[in-house]
Design a protein around this nucleic acid. Structure first.
Lengths: 189, 189
DNA sequence: CTCCGTTATTGACAAATGTCAATGCAACTG
DNA sequence: CAGTTGCATTGACATTTGTCAATAACGGAG
């Protein structure tokens, strides 16, 4: 299982045995169950998450209604705003499948960066890439209709549609479950 | 004018005279005019931008129509997806006011990071913060109606509403100019 | 297998938004 | 000053989406 992290990381940098050893000693890998809530509204986040296997979802609770704002599948990561900005979280993060996560704290991050500065470079690069991906998501959302957003998901994240319930997808593309159901019906013709 | 950058940076890290000197020698500051296009669809971006004074806007051209996806005012920055991902840009970046920008290339970035590693830490932290801000923007967009988005802008970026034309704001919150006009009328009652 | 809770679909109607065309308004130009 | 241009507003009507209520489809628990 650790090997999967190393495979992922060596896409970007080379890894010495010494560095791998440090990772192993940090005990980053944790198991969670479907339904586990990793972060709640009003709480302070303490951890970064990287999804090795499974699915996380972030959502706001607005007047008793869940508003889904993101899904995180394999090889995607979350740096909760609450942690980065040191303020109470406005949203929830929840496991939507049994999941294997890489869990890191700012503390561990600091130690790793001091021992192996190239990880800081890696984190900077990954976070810039993540940022540009998010700019693109926001752009896609702004410039398209709910129907187009659904078609985008069908094209770009087909696995997601198979793995999470439709009412969460509906919320994610900004419509009610009824409307999504009608969009789907229209497509069949 | 250079002093403004230093003021901004010393919010996050301390600066030695030596480091300030390096910045001065890089000649980062450039002037642009309203209407200048910094990046076009299909081109490769070569630069990062940081707005010291003025206003940039990013937009897609979809069927001849501009879809505004972001505004960048003072102390906000752009790392174009095109540059980060090394692919042709899908959108335009344009000066909406005469602007003073800090312009950096990956090359310059690399030299600075090698000479003063703490700038890499700074960039990582800033880009993480930027990322978490963007996640919040996307979340706000997903979970609210056009009317609420406009109210958000009134509360959180009132200067923006004074500085750019309404049809760009309309596009940014995902409606037509007519609809935004009606939202504004409703507010007066 | 049935029962039960959750999710998905459908219909009828209300509300919001888009579209198109006309008008107003302010700034710039000659 | 008149004429032009770009932006904002308004009205009439079409389309999309939301809301509410009913029903269907599905899966897990017993």
């Amino acid at each position: 299982m650790e090997e999967e992290i190393f495979n992922y990381l060596t896409q970007f940098i080379s890894l010495q045995e010494e560095e791998k050893q440090m990772f192993r000693e940090l005990n980053l890998i944790k198991q969670y169950q479907k339904g586990d809530v990793l972060l709640r509204e009003g709480r302070f986040a303490r951890e970064y998450y990287f999804v090795m296997k499974g699915c996380l979802r972030s959502y706001y609770l607005v007047g008793g209604q869940e508003k889904t704002t993101a899904f995180f599948l394999e090889e995607e990561s979350i740096a909760p705003e609450s942690l980065v900005e040191q303020k109470p979280s406005e949203y929830y993060i929840r496991c939507e499948e049994d999941s294997t996560l890489l869990v890191a704290t700012p503390d561990m991050e600091k130690r790793v960066f001091q021992a192996f500065p190239k990880f800081e470079t890696l984190c900077r690069v990954l976070s810039e890439r993540e940022l540009s991906k998010h700019q693109t998501s926001l752009a896609n959302f702004i410039r398209s209709t709910p129907e187009e957003r659904y078609q985008d998901l069908q094209k770009n994240r087909p696995q997601l549609l198979q793995r999470v319930p439709q009412y969460q997808i509906a919320s994610f593309i900004g419509v009610t479950p009824e409307t999504l159901s009608r969009i789907r019906r229209k497509q069949k013709d």
